[in-house]
């Protein structure tokens, strides 16, 4: 469970930063596309980290 949640959290963090890199590289053309990916990244990060944090405290 912990591994799955950690993977989701890492994916969330990647989705926060990667779209910005892809924008610079010209692989994402539209800013709103990057915004949507970052939003998904944020949701994944928090969705995975809240149970992870609770698990680590136990």
């Amino acid at each position: 469970m912990k591994k799955i949640l950690t993977s989701i959290a890492v994916l969330g963090l990647l989705l926060t930063i990667l779209p910005a890199i892809l924008l610079i590289a010209g692989l994402i053309k539209q800013l709103p596309t990057a915004h949507h990916l970052m939003l998904a990244g944020m949701l994944l990060w928090f969705a995975a980290n809240i149970p992870l944090y609770t698990l680590s405290r136990k």
């Binding site: 969330g12 800013l31 990060w45 928090f46």
Partner: peptide, 14 residues
């Protein structure tokens, strides 16, 4: 905290 650091990086790049 780690996510915010990521957002700061994204801020600069965007």
């Amino acid at each position: 905290a780690p996510w915010m650091i990521g957002v700061f990086v994204a801020c600069g790049l965007v």
